[in-house]
């Protein structure tokens, strides 16, 4: 395991990106930071710029206006950057699959490492997903 990856696992900094969601997943992500769930005790910190982030949390169904910008943002991220898809919309577009404005699912635009299903996933599920992500990176 490289030095950078080892350091990242101690304290993964996350950047949160909504690409056309209903707000629920975003609020559950913010909920994870607040006292009851408090993921900051694992060293996870929500940062304001993709250039500081190790983990990209993507919610929402990637509509036409967001999809191109999402790709640009992913390209700006320092590698290694892992992508976590949160919520049914970013997994498979959920019930927006027939919408005229949601042409492709998220993993056709950028590579996704972890999928957290749910509409919206509970904060426990999000924490569980991120723990799985850390195990996955450790395993490789």
């Amino acid at each position: 395991m490289s030095f950078a990856v080892n350091a990242m696992l101690k304290s993964p900094w996350v950047f949160h990106l909504s690409t056309g969601s209903c707000n629920n997943c975003d609020i559950e992500i913010l909920d994870c930071l607040t006292p009851r769930f408090d993921i900051e005790r694992f060293g996870m910190l929500l940062v304001g710029s993709i250039k500081h982030a190790d983990v990209l949390l993507v919610t929402g169904s990637c509509n036409r206006k967001s999809a191109g910008r999402l790709k640009t943002l992913y390209e700006q991220a320092p590698q290694p950057c892992v992508v976590v898809a949160i919520g049914e919309c970013s997994l498979s577009r959920g019930l927006f699959i027939h919408s005229y404005n949601c042409p492709v699912p998220l993993d056709k635009i950028i590579p996704v490492s972890v999928y957290i299903p749910g509409c919206p996933p509970k904060p426990e599920a999000i924490i569980g997903g991120v723990v799985k992500l850390i195990q996955k990176v450790k395993g490789t």
């Binding site: 169904s61 206006k65 019930l95």
Partner: peptide, 26 residues
């Protein structure tokens, strides 16, 4: 426009009962 999902049109594709679930996700 970054959040636009075409809910009104989707709702017109669903039955009255199903549309409630789409509307909930506005």
């Amino acid at each position: 426009g970054y959040n636009h999902r075409g809910i009104e049109k989707l709702s017109e594709m669903k039955s009255f009962d199903q549309a409630t679930f789409v509307i909930e996700r506005i």
